[in-house]
Amino acid sequence: MGSWLPKTPTRYQPDSSVAFREQLTAALLEYFHREGITAVELAKRIPAVRAAYIKEMRGGMLLGEKRLLAMCEATGIKVDVSTTLPVRQQTIQLEAA
């Protein structure tokens, strides 16, 4: 029988994913501050959001991408995702043109 292995809290996370979640968290917290929305008010407005999520975000914890995107959509924040090629590939494309 295989043994159960718990997930480690410091598992590998791609840098782009961490940066994306940091940007979403910063945008949400700035919106909450600007609009004067408390964690309890937000939890009442959006049933899927718990007040503890906002407290965790303010404490520096990064929530998952899906949860953050859902919170953005529910609050009216439009998320624009873009990608860029590495510099080497950009150079190759410019030279080919």
Rank of each mutant, 00 (worst) to 15 (best):
M1N: 03
S3C: 04
W4T: 05
L5H: 14
P6Y: 09
P6G: 12
P6L: 14
P6W: 14
P6Q: 13
K7D: 15
K7W: 09
K7L: 15
T8S: 11
T10I: 12
R11V: 09
R11N: 14
R11P: 03
Y12V: 13
Y12Q: 11
Q13S: 12
P14K: 06
D15C: 09
S16I: 04
S16W: 12
S17L: 11
V18T: 12
V18G: 06
F20T: 10
R21T: 06
Q23G: 09
Q23H: 11
Q23V: 03
L24S: 09
T25A: 05
A26I: 12
A27K: 06
L28T: 07
L29M: 06
E30T: 15
Y31C: 13
F32S: 05
H33F: 10
H33S: 12
H33V: 09
H33D: 14
I37V: 12
T38F: 07
A39V: 03
V40N: 14
K44C: 04
R45S: 11
R45K: 13
I46R: 05
I46Y: 01
I46V: 13
P47S: 10
P47L: 12
V49L: 04
V49N: 05
R50G: 13
A51L: 01
A51G: 01
A52F: 04
A52L: 09
A52P: 02
Y53R: 03
I54W: 10
K55E: 14
K55T: 11
K55A: 07
E56N: 09
E56Q: 14
M57R: 01
M57C: 01
G60V: 07
G60M: 07
M61R: 13
L62W: 02
L62A: 05
L62Q: 04
L62D: 02
L62T: 11
L62G: 01
L62E: 01
G64K: 12
G64T: 03
G64R: 12
K66M: 00
K66L: 03
R67L: 04
L68V: 00
A70Y: 00
A70Q: 04
C72N: 01
C72E: 02
E73P: 00
E73Y: 10
A74P: 01
T75N: 07
T75P: 04
G76A: 08
G76D: 12
I77S: 02
I77F: 01
K78L: 08
D80S: 08
D80N: 10
D80T: 07
D80Y: 04
V81W: 00
V81H: 02
T83G: 00
T84A: 02
T84R: 07
P86T: 08
V87K: 11
V87R: 11
Q89S: 08
Q90V: 12
Q90H: 09
Q90R: 10
T91M: 14
T91V: 14
T91C: 11
I92N: 14
Q93I: 15
E95S: 10
E95Q: 10
E95A: 15
E95P: 02
E95W: 13
E95C: 13
A96C: 06
A96P: 10
A97F: 14
A97L: 15
A97W: 12
